[in-house]
Design a protein around this nucleic acid. Structure first.
Lengths: 238, 238
DNA sequence: GTGGCTTATTGACAATAATCAATCCGCGAG
DNA sequence: CTCGCGGATTGATTATTGTCAATAAGCCAC
């Protein structure tokens, strides 16, 4: 059970700097923070379950959270959330059931704002309403990109493009670390862990070397000629 | 090239009744309509191409439009838009490139509102901004459902659930018509036309009979026991 | 360090889906 | 009515992916 407590000033500031909260009125921001909690969670804790109604808007302050979904004994990962950002905003605003479950991947610090407070401030604060538009539009477009990735590419192509994106995100050096388990990566890419192992081998001819969590791409150009990355699928910033 | 003309009063009313435009100020609605066009398109016309920047918010008044995407010589259908609703709202609001292309499936009547007008009114009209939040949240959730459908189900299960949804949407009678070509359905469901043919045969044991575009489901309960429909995937209203 | 756990890998196999090629069918033009 | 076109179906084959089982490798607690 979460224990209600005043938010530390530093957390206050971090949240305020998010695009979502940057432009709203001070009074409304204070209203939101007034009912907010912060809590630390160990890894592998299920924070929310699909089908439940939205009680809190979640903001991840540190750690990482997996948004996943299950049906008929199968389970897949829909997205990974990293600090600092909110998640499950759409369900909160619409007061609709969650479509995805969420669990901590690592030890995580998470702020929770009561959904009814979010909806109340949404009704009152125009800048907040506009910021939500931008946030939702981005989430929507991310989901469109993910669906294109799934429907237009084979698993080998998805892995290749994932590695190219990861390489850029890690600063562009030849060697970088995967920042989560391979079985999780498999779920993200829509394949089984066994297949992921084989897919890594399938990319060896294009200069992909794997040593545990450490990936080396000897010739990004060669890999890209196979992966054919496309900004309308792979550029997660636009 | 579209020819600028005043919108007929009836179209005016139809658009005004959309959730998106219902609550905005009269003056702002008039502003939007002032720069708007209406045009009739024959089937198979590409209205927008992915990668282009958003010039117009589109509103489909009659007919049907396919949102699709291509990559590396492959093509897939992302969604089908039916009257009366808008499409590609996210790109318009963010002034970002389209992620999907759009083409008419049938003869269609479409209203076009200049994107810059939409953005200007978005900045000025708070009710409009809030209506956009609701619209985008719904689009986002539809996309999440589509991704769950894709990642958690086989093609046979996707077809079975599609048929059950379609049956309800057609009024619940045992026999109903598919409202688009099978090759288009195949693209929607993420499979090849050949595989769709075989999938229909694979559903015969569950009481699915196919005669051209006409589908008969003799025992919906039996089909449902195979399809295992789930409101968090298949209920497109919530 | 060692035991016991989870994850990762590998191989053999089965299931699922795509591709290629050959009809079949329905429909509109002439 | 008949031709010709495009979509739909079918069969044969290949490619891709998933499943099951066994083993190896890494990690943590003790």
């Amino acid at each position: 059970m979460p224990i209600r407590m005043g938010l530390p000033e530093s957390v206050h500031r971090d949240i305020r700097e998010l695009h979502l909260f940057r432009d709203m009125a001070d009074a409304h921001f204070t209203d939101l923070m007034h009912g907010a909690y912060v809590q630390n969670f160990p890894p592998q804790i299920e924070l929310i379950s699909e089908g439940d109604t939205s009680d809190f808007l979640h903001i991840i302050l540190s750690g990482s959270v997996d948004l996943f979904s299950a049906w008929n004994k199968r389970e897949t990962s829909m997205a990974t959330v990293r600090p600092i950002s909110t998640f499950i905003l759409a369900a909160t605003i619409l007061d609709a059931p969650y479509l995805m479950s969420a669990r901590t991947l690592t030890k995580s610090r998470i702020a929770l704002i009561p959904s009814q407070d979010v909806r109340a401030v949404f009704d009152a604060d125009n800048a907040f309403a506009r910021a939500i538009v931008a946030e939702l539009a981005q989430c929507y477009r991310s989901m469109v990109k993910a669906q294109k990735d799934l429907k237009l590419r084979t698993s080998l192509e998805r892995l290749a493009n994932f590695l190219l994106r990861q390489r850029i995100q890690s600063g562009g050096s030849a060697t970088f670390e995967l920042d989560f388990e391979k079985r999780h990566l498999a779920a993200v890419l829509g394949m089984t862990p066994e297949n992921l192992s084989r897919a890594f081998k399938g990319l060896q001819p294009y200069g992909v070397e794997v040593d545990g969590m450490q990936i080396t791409i000897t010739d990004p150009g060669d890999l890209a000629s196979f992966a054919k990355p496309n900004p309308l699928i792979d550029d997660h910033s636009t």
